[in-house]
Structures are given as structure tokens and as C-alpha cells.
Nucleic acid binder design. Structure first.
Lengths: 282, 282
DNA sequence: GTAAGTTACGAGCGACGTAAAAATG
DNA sequence: CATTTTTACGTCGCTCGTAACTTAC
């Protein structure tokens, strides 16, 4: 049987019209290419060139052979690409979420449980998450509601409640409870990647002037260094409370609370059993 | 880039389930196969096996790779087959004829003009010849009538007239002219491959008892050694006349004469110009 | 004379087989 | 203990490059 490199060489000859030029293109000496083509002809048991004393031309056989060779090489490259992509996908865990918190909670767990795997995470709209879960784009998705779907497991993962984080001197800092509307119109610090919470803010606080920060660390520094109101959630309060001198006041609107459900296919539930055990052990 | 023999080896491993068995099947030492598979993995940049200390299993990547490999190898073998068939067809001249005479006339010319070519010849029905001429099955066909078709050349090649070949003692051997019906009911020697003439004989001599010979040489010997009537044509009479002591009487029926036309595509007319020049030079 | 192709020859890399080691059932 | 796989090592062969030769423009 012939080999792929011979087909590549044949194509090079067909494109360059001359052995010397093709040899140069292939980083090969011209005699080596000459011999290789002779060997290809012998293996195919078919002449490919009409040989004049110092010129060769591709004959009809060769033209047909080149067409086949192109197809075969294309398929071979296709095989490599798909294999690599498939292998990569097999060694990455893709997580999608409608909000950052559950993802932040889960990413360190995943990377410590599966150190060999790449973890990729995205914040997306709910429909995109559902779609991605079904078509395999995501192994795990966090949704703000429960779903029932064939072959899909879905379980309540955590609740998140928004708080206003106010400086002690703020006019409302003495209140026990607030509504989103209460700070509408003020200037607030806001971290950009808050996912589906954005909808509630746009609805209930349309006049608020948000200073949006895309870097979480700079957002965090600005909160500490300024007297601007911001949001914080029950899940972040624990580590913050001691260090910051801010007052966290719960927000009473239904839009300011969410229950996140973790969904995945039964298949991935089986392969990542340890992870799910950890998630729902407490 | 990987090579085809590595794909063959991978498939062998997939089929044999173990390196040792696959190595034996491939007439290769087991360590050589082990190394070759390692190299394939390296070239694909993708692991193909889960390696236990003294066992290997194909992983998901490998299953995908085997599917691709089968397709690629199938295409490679397909390429060889088609190339060889194409090459063979390029070096054979296929002639079809409705009767043996024009073909016998032409075959020695073809093989002397194109000694490198294989000549293949067939006697067929007219419709099959026409069809074969159009679809490329035949380069040249002899038909008993003229045709006009786009891209097809057709020219009168020769006339053939049937004679009865009678022994001197035959009751009708003195006649100047005969009709087919005149010998109907007698016993005659007949060569089998007479093509379209058969139709005339079946129509005009239905009661004749033909002793059919499939070998021309034995037919010829029997004609010489017996007193049975047979057919001969104007084209064969010249060389026969002196040697045989038979009397050849022309047959007057229109069915006993034919004009043969040589047809071929303009394309093949160009590549076999010499042959056509020879055919129509005199 | 330059450019292209084939053949000859010597060298180096790669693939092969044998042998050895490790591990499993 | 037989079977299977991997690693080590020495050898052989294939392919490469250089060189020489031939031919055509």
C-alpha cells in the first residue's frame, strides 16, 4: 500500500508542474522526490508520468490520482482535527450559569476533584443554558428554576439573597429592610457579570446610575474605598462582614432572591458522581 | 502526519483487542506494534489507549479514530482499484461488431499499429453496439447501417456478400445464382459466431439442419473434409479459392449482403487517426 | 550554459526483532 | 506460570543527499 506522504508529494508535483520545484516546496532533494514518485507508480502499478528525457508530465492516470489524493488527505486532516477537538472536549468540564455565585462556588470544587480536567465556565441567558445542556455544550448548568426533562437530573443547589451594602453614613443605613426601588436614582457601584440579576435591576431601578466594573478585584477595592452603595449577597457576606465596615440590609423584593438549580444529564451525573455527592452532601 | 500503515495497525488492534494478536495478524513483532501505536498517538496528539500494566484498551478517541481510519483506508483501496481499472481501460482498444468479418479484418491492423495496446473485441446486437459506442464501452463499432449522431463519425467500411460453398457433386453446384431458400431443409455446416447474419438464416432457412461449430479451425477442417454445403463470403473467397475444390455460388437475397459502417467518436478518431487513415486509404 | 530528470553511491535515521523486566490472573 | 505490555539494545533497510550523467532549450 502507498503512504500519505507520497500522496502529498504527488499533489505537490501536480501543483508545481516540475519535480525540482515540488522538491524545493517539500524541503526534499529532487532525486529523492524522483525516486519516491517512481515508487508510488510501482505501488499503484500504474504509470503516472509521461517521461521525456528531461521533462515529466502528469498523464491522465495522475490527474485522477491527484483528485483521489486530495480527497484522502482532506479526510486525514479532518480526522486529526475532529479527534483533537473530541479529545479536548472529553477533558474539559463545561459549566454554564445564569449568575456568577453558584459558579464561583463550584469551580474550585471541580478543579480540585478533577485536577486533570480543564474547567470552562460561562454566564449565559437561561434559554441558551437549557439549549446547551441538551446539545452537550454544557455538562452542568445553573438555572434559577427547576426543570424536568428526560434524561436530565435537576436539584436545588443554593439560595441567593441580595443585600444593599451601604456605608454607615448613608441615609437608609438604619433600616431593617429595603426594596430595590428605595435606592432607585442613586449612584451605585456594580460588578458587570451578574447574569440574570441584571433583569431585576433594569426593571426595578431604571433611573439608577450604575458605575459598572468589569474587573471584580477593582470593583471590590472601589467598594471598600468609597461610600457608594453596592450590592452584596448572603453568600458573600460571611467573609466580608468582619473586614468591611459596611452595613448590609436585606432587600425584600421577590426579584432580589433566587433559588439556583444544578442540572446535568444522567450520563454526566454518573461520570462526575463524586462532584454531585460533594455538592449535595450538606 | 500519520501514515496509512499506522491506520491499518490501529484497526487490527481494534479488531484483535490485544497488541500481541494484532501483531501476529500483521506479521509484526509485538514490541514493534507497541511502538508504532505510541508514535501514532504522538502524531495525532491524542491518547488512544487506556494503559494498564499488562493490558491496553481502546478509549473513546480510538473508537472515533478507527471509524475515520476505516473510511480513509477504504478510500485508499478504492483509489487503487479505480486507478488500475482506468489505466487498463486506457490501454485497451475495444471493438464491437455485428458480424465477424470486419472485426477479423481490422484486429491485425490495430495490433500492429498499436502494439502496446490490448485489443478486446466482441460481437453484439446492433442496439448494444450503439449503446456501447455512446457510453464509451467501445471505441469502435461495426454496424450494418449508417448512423448520424452528434460527435460520432460513421463511414462505410466494406461490403460482404454471402455465397453458398458447395461440393462439385452437389445438385445445385451448376447454378450461377442461388437463393437462401434453395438450400432450406438441407444439412449445412455453420460457424457459430456469425453475428447479425443469424437473423437472415433463421428467417429464410428455418428448416435447415445446421451443424454448428464454435471453433473456427474445426469448422474450416470439416468444410474441407466433408461434402456438406456451407457459407462463405466474398471476403474469404480469395484465399480459399485456390486451395479448396469447392464451388462458390452467390446468393441473390438482399439479406445475404450487408454494408458495414465503422463508427467512433470524434475524440477517438483523433487519437487513432493512423488507424482510420489505414482503413479508408484504399 | 542552464535547468530538469535519472542513476549511482555512501551515510544516517528509523523501524524492526530479540531480549529483559514488570505485572496480572 | 503463562500472557501481555513496555523498555533497552543492536542490526538492517529505507530514504535521504551529494555527485555524476544525459538531455533539451
Amino acid at each position: 500500500m502507498f503512504e500519505l506522504h507520497q500522496l502529498e508529494q504527488l499533489i505537490a508535483v501536480a501543483e508545481c508542474k516540475t519535480l525540482s520545484a515540488a522538491a524545493e516546496k517539500l524541503h526534499l532533494s529532487q532525486p529523492a522526490l524522483s525516486r519516491s514518485m517512481q515508487k508510488l507508480e510501482a505501488e499503484l502499478q500504474v504509470p503516472l508520468f509521461t517521461r521525456h528525457k528531461n521533462k515529466i508530465e502528469l498523464n491522465e492516470n495522475a490527474k485522477m490520482a491527484v483528485d483521489y489524493a486530495r480527497k484522502i488527505l482532506w479526510q486525514s486532516r479532518d480526522m486529526m482535527e475532529h479527534l483533537r477537538a473530541f479529545d479536548l472536549s472529553r477533558r474539559t468540564i463545561r459549566v454554564g450559569s445564569c449568575a456568577p455565585m453558584p459558579m464561583w462556588d463550584v469551580l474550585p470544587v471541580l478543579s480540585s476533584l478533577y485536577p486533570a480536567m480543564t474547567i470552562s465556565s460561562e454566564i449565559k441567558e437561561e434559554e441558551a443554558l437549557l439549549q446547551g445542556l441538551l446539545d452537550g455544550t454544557y455538562q452542568f448548568v445553573f438555572l434559577p428554576y427547576e426543570i424536568t426533562e428526560n434524561g436530565i437530573q435537576c436539584k436545588k443547589y443554593m439560595e441567593e439573597h441580595l443585600f444593599f451594602s451601604l456605608p454607615p453614613g448613608h441615609a437608609l443605613s438604619g433600616r431593617k429592610v429595603l426594596h430595590l426601588r428605595d435606592l432607585n436614582g442613586e449612584t451605585m457601584l456594580l460588578y458587570s457579570d451578574i447574569g440574570f440579576w441584571k433583569k431585576a435591576l433594569e426593571k426595578e431601578m431604571p433611573e439608577t446610575h450604575f458605575l459598572v466594573q468589569t474587573e471584580f478585584s477593582t470593583f471590590h477595592e472601589l467598594v471598600k474605598a468609597s461610600v457608594l452603595p453596592s450590592f452584596i449577597t448572603n453568600l458573600a457576606i460571611k467573609k466580608e462582614e468582619e473586614t468591611s465596615n459596611r452595613i448590609n440590609i436585606p432587600i425584600d423584593d421577590p426579584e432580589a432572591s433566587a433559588t439556583f438549580y444544578l442540572a446535568c444529564s444522567s450520563e454526566t451525573a454518573k461520570t462526575y458522581r463524586k462532584f454531585l455527592q460533594y455538592c449535595f452532601s450538606d
